[in-house]
Design a protein around this nucleic acid. Structure first.
Length: 505
RNA sequence: GGGCCGUUAGCUCAGUCGGUAGAGCAGUUGGCUUUUAACCAAUUGGUCGUUGGUUCGAAUCCAACACGGCCCA
């Protein structure tokens, strides 16, 4: 019942009650009469995986001879007659619990056992007639009662919304989901090992910043009470990591969360994980080589093969990636005869008209060119491709190309029509950087909310001399999507952002 | 922001032409007790997402809203 003035969350929880939960609460009450219902003095001797490794290959007779006793613990996942399947963090082990051979009080306890309960059990290791490794249970104990029933045993939990909102249930019943997050963890661990082995140092820079910088994106805004100061959640760690190269840390990386106040989609979550690394005395070509090597090694580590299948496409990470300039990619995928259309602002505007691009004629030429790329080309780039020569107007932190000052020594890696990485030779000329910041401020003042602020301290840092360097960011969520064949970023985030559910009174 | 689709028992899903709600699993009771989505018999369980409209009558038709999915921008 929803009492007037009751906490809405409590009201929702109360409404969530049903007969199945009530029955289990009654069982819990009965247990509370007998003893502590949530003991924490049970200790197990074996995990399911350890038992499988030690005894899985043994013959039934040999096991009988051994008569090895052990103790396990885990969640009840199946009950088939006298058989109870227990799952622990390592895998599954079957228990044999015949209520006719158990002592009377345990037979009573067995009646109260439900799917989802967490129990400890001990007994002799044996193999059933069908050859399944099992434990002939002589003693068992309920360790934690499940008051809520598990989803259906065969189909698991398939409602997408509930899988995201109640990930703990998804993880209990859907092995494929568990595997995705195990793989994510392996990938992140591997990346750290990879950079550590190359002599990079992992660092942590501010996530709360007084000036958001390092990317063109809308930030989340918050407030620091004691300082009475406006603060921003970082959109990128870039400017702090580059300050560290000024300080003399020549190879640094950070693998952590960024926050961008933008829409949600199958490839965007407001908080997402990014790897950024900065490498002194290297240039963007070195980054591309490293990126190819990293992706190949991740593929072999995770998939045991450089061939990765993703959503119907197949990528061979043993091969070097294609390399194509922004302009070249537009020419190729829009079937343009020559590059004359890119000569000046007027001709670019004319081309945007011809291609039916949505744009603002007041935008600088390079920004219109990027709109062409994003609206007409990016999604078509399936196979791994480095797109290079990004316009200087959309690359305010990247080093200018020495042959063509309109573009930067920058690349993005596109796979499956998605941006996976973005890297460039760093702009370490403080006077050029100050100029670029001023251009960003002008764009911000003309209404571009994503344009950057002028970061005077960053300019001061560059004035102390930053070594020539190259730096790159790799989107970890999208990378995990690629290596787990996941269609949505929500499938690789344990707790993706969701709109709150509304309760109707 | 726009388009399309979805929302029915704890879970997975049916629901015909608008005529008063169904299955499997889970649960309960009993049987069986070396099974593999165990099996056999009986049985409980529903604000049909929310609000409003049309109608003698709405899970079903219409509208708005909420949440989710896919596609587009």
């Amino acid at each position: 019942m929803t009492a007037r003035g009751q906490d809405p969350d409590q009201a929702a929880a109360a409404l969530d009650e049903n007969k199945l939960i009530a029955q289990r609460r009654d069982k819990l009450q009965a247990i509370r009469q007998l003893r502590h219902a949530y003991p924490n003095d049970f200790r197990r001797q074996s995990t399911a995986a350890e038992l499988a490794a030690a005894y899985g290959d043994q013959e039934s007779d040999a096991l009988q001879q051994l008569a090895q006793q052990t103790t396990v613990a885990g969640r009840v996942m199946r009950m088939r007659g006298p058989f109870v399947v227990l799952r622990d963090g390592s895998g599954q082990i079957q228990l044999y619990m015949n209520n006719k051979s158990l002592p009377e009080e345990l037979a009573e306890e067995l009646k109260r056992l439900d799917l989802g309960d967490i129990v400890g059990a001990s007994g002799e290791i044996f193999k059933t007639r069908t050859g399944e490794l099992s434990l002939r249970v002589s003693r068992f104990q309920l360790l934690s009662k499940a008051l809520r029933p598990l989803p259906e045993k065969f189909h698991g939990l398939s409602d997408t919304e509930q899988r995201y909102r109640q990930r703990y249930v998804d993880l209990i019943v859907n092995e494929s989901s568990r595997r995705v997050f195990e793989t994510r963890s392996r990938i992140v661990r591997f990346i750290r090992q990879y950079f550590d082995a190359l002599g990079f140092m992992e660092v942590e820079t501010p996530m709360m910043q007084t000036l958001p910088g390092g990317a063109t994106a809308r930030p989340f805004v918050t407030h620091h009470n004691a300082l009475d100061q406006r603060m921003y959640l970082r959109v990128a760690p870039e400017l702090f990591l580059k300050r560290l190269t000024v300080g003399g840390f020549e190879k640094v990386y950070e693998l952590n969360r960024n926050f961008r106040n933008e829409g949600l989609s199958t490839r965007h979550n407001p908080e997402f994980t990014m790897l950024e690394f900065y490498w002194a005395y290297a240039a963007y070509g070195d980054l591309m080589d490293l990126t190819e090597d990293l992706f190949r090694r991740i593929a072999i580590e995770i998939a045991d093969s450089a061939l990765v299948n993703y959503q119907g496409s197949s990528y061979d990470f043993s091969q070097p990636f294609a390399r194509l300039s922004v302009q070249g990619a537009i020419e190729k995928h829009c079937n343009l005869a020559d590059g004359d259309q890119f000569a000046d602002h007027d001709s670019v505007v004319a081309l945007a008209q011809t291609l039916g691009i949505q744009y603002n004629p007041a935008w600088p030429k390079g920004k219109i060119v990027m709109e062409m790329f994003e609206q007409r080309v990016e999604a078509k780039l399936d196979q791994p491709t480095f797109i290079t020569e990004y316009p200087v107007e959309v690359s305010p932190l990247a080093r200018r190309n020495e042959q063509n000052p309109e573009v930067t020594d920058r690349f993005e890696l596109i796979i499956g029509g998605r941006e996976l990485a973005n890297g460039f030779s760093e702009l370490n000329d403080p006077e050029d950087q100050a100029e670029r910041f001023r251009a960003q401020v002008a764009q911000k003042e003309s209404g571009d909310e994503e344009a950057m602020h002028y970061d005077a301290d960053y300019i001061r840092a560059l004035e102390y001399a930053m070594p020539p360097a190259a730096g790159e960011g790799i989107g970890i969520d999208r990378l995990v999507m690629l290596f787990t064949d996941s269609a949505s970023i929500r499938d690789v985030l344990l707790f993706p952002h969701m709109r709150p559910q509304q309760d109707h009174d």
